[in-house]
Simulated scan of single mutants.
Amino acid sequence: MDLDIFVSAHSGEWERLETLLRRGRRLTGEEADELVRLYQRTTTHLSLLQSGAPDPALVGRLTHLVARARSVVAGTRTAGWRDAARFFTAGFPAAVYRSRRWWIPTALLSIAVAALVGWWIAAHPEVRAAIAAPAELREMTRPGGQYETYYSSHPAASFAAQVWTNNAQAAAVCLVLGVFLGVPVLWVLLLNMLNLGVGIGLMASAGRLDVFLGLVIPHGLLELTAVFVAAGTGLRLGWTVVDPGPRTRRAALAEEGRSALGMAVGLAAVLFVSGLIEGFVTPSGLPTWARISIGVLAELLFLAYVWTAGGRAAARGETGDVEAADRGDQLPGVA
């Protein structure tokens, strides 16, 4: 691209756009149409400059001009309660629902891995001996041992906050770093399933698997579901790098990335609920059946929320992406 020729050919349009933006009065209908047309053309010019002849000064000027024009054409809007309500009633559940073909298989395979690790540890004394000394294993698995006192070793409120922070960070890693072909996601899943499998295997070998499950299930159902949703979404984002489908790779990654980052907010709320259960219900004096019932109820409510609100929103075309007015402009194909 010859930059001088390009500037000479289009500088008149840019100056005219600046003139229209400086008008203090209302534009006439003809002027408004002209402003929209010049805004679209200048957006295309900016794209061509960025890809073909990146002159910092000119790119900066046109970037500022396009931003000013967009605020006039699209209007300005501040986020409010309406946006939050739309997100939790449509955007978030639709995003979870749309990614179900990723996170449900992820959940099933992960649980199978944890169960296999648990069986391997429970059935092989030499594996348990490699984990810790016999005295340490007895201390961990005995009545009143480390596995039982873990959930009541700290004040409930601070423990719930700590659990929520740790789980939210793990979910965020899956969502954000999934773009690296899903490799960090698989690592996070492996660590979580190994940790669960070790607990299952050690407590099963001590004949106390029922106690362990009674401690894990109340909060673990919702907590692991949130982690699996994050992992499945991260893997989907990683696969988008390989196969963006009919969209351009850039457009596909932008759409799926915005949806994944939005899902991080929704999953933080889900993990907050599971953290409250883990901090206040799991270590409580309630009977095991009551604690498990609370966990099962929380899990069923979440799944019903995803399949009803999310399914309906997805059928309407909701993807979990931000509203069209808040997305980047779709550039015209010709200058």
Score class of each variant (00 low, 15 high):
residue 124 H to I: 02
residue 135 A to Y: 03
residue 138 R to P: 11
residue 158 S to R: 15
residue 94 A to N: 03
residue 204 A to V: 04
residue 92 F to S: 00
residue 283 P to K: 05
residue 325 A to G: 05
residue 155 P to T: 12
residue 269 A to T: 10
residue 146 Q to C: 03
residue 70 R to Y: 00
residue 146 Q to F: 09
residue 190 L to D: 00
residue 244 P to C: 05
residue 133 A to E: 05
residue 222 L to S: 00
residue 303 L to F: 11
residue 292 I to G: 02
residue 285 G to C: 11
residue 132 A to H: 00
residue 217 I to K: 04
residue 204 A to M: 09
residue 222 L to G: 09
residue 105 P to L: 07
residue 266 G to M: 02
residue 226 A to G: 12
residue 62 L to Y: 03
residue 156 A to N: 13
residue 134 P to L: 05
residue 57 A to K: 15
residue 322 V to G: 07
residue 299 E to G: 10
residue 251 A to G: 06
residue 200 I to K: 00
residue 76 T to F: 08
residue 187 W to D: 11
residue 96 V to P: 07
residue 194 L to M: 13
residue 103 W to Y: 13
residue 8 S to E: 14
residue 18 E to W: 07
residue 180 F to D: 01
residue 10 H to L: 15
residue 313 A to H: 01
residue 181 L to C: 12
residue 282 T to F: 06
residue 58 L to I: 05
residue 30 E to M: 01
residue 151 Y to D: 05
residue 220 G to S: 02
residue 139 E to H: 07
residue 165 T to K: 15
residue 176 V to G: 00
residue 269 A to F: 12
residue 221 L to T: 08
residue 249 R to K: 15
residue 278 E to D: 04
residue 1 M to N: 10
residue 250 R to F: 10
residue 235 L to D: 03
residue 163 V to S: 08
residue 132 A to E: 05
residue 141 T to Q: 03
residue 237 L to T: 08
residue 196 L to N: 07
residue 230 A to D: 11
residue 55 D to A: 01
residue 245 G to I: 06
residue 167 N to G: 10
residue 155 P to L: 13
residue 105 P to E: 07
residue 163 V to M: 08
residue 209 L to K: 01
residue 230 A to L: 14
residue 153 S to D: 13
residue 197 G to P: 08
residue 15 E to M: 12
residue 257 G to H: 10
residue 230 A to Y: 07
residue 20 L to R: 08
residue 37 R to K: 13
residue 183 V to C: 09
residue 157 A to Q: 14
residue 296 V to M: 01
residue 210 D to T: 05
residue 68 R to W: 04
residue 214 G to I: 10
residue 8 S to K: 14
residue 32 A to G: 06
residue 76 T to E: 15
residue 173 V to Y: 09
residue 92 F to A: 00
residue 329 D to I: 14
residue 160 A to V: 09
residue 126 E to L: 12
residue 148 E to I: 00
residue 94 A to Y: 04
residue 233 T to I: 12
residue 130 A to C: 00
residue 255 E to W: 02
residue 53 A to K: 07
residue 256 E to S: 06
residue 264 A to K: 02
residue 240 T to R: 06
residue 19 T to D: 13
residue 105 P to C: 06
residue 103 W to A: 10
residue 170 A to F: 04
residue 228 F to N: 04
residue 252 A to P: 03
residue 300 L to I: 07
residue 164 W to M: 13
residue 123 A to C: 00
residue 178 G to E: 00
residue 29 G to P: 02
residue 174 C to W: 10
residue 210 D to C: 01
residue 239 W to T: 06
residue 330 Q to Y: 12
residue 96 V to F: 05
residue 170 A to Q: 08
residue 210 D to M: 03
residue 144 G to I: 09
residue 153 S to A: 15
residue 269 A to W: 01
residue 314 A to F: 07
residue 31 E to P: 08
residue 128 R to L: 04
residue 15 E to N: 15
residue 138 R to F: 11
residue 35 L to H: 02
residue 133 A to Q: 03
residue 180 F to Y: 10
residue 14 W to K: 11
residue 145 G to N: 05
residue 172 A to N: 09
residue 318 E to D: 11
residue 96 V to M: 15
residue 288 T to P: 12
residue 200 I to A: 02
residue 117 V to K: 01
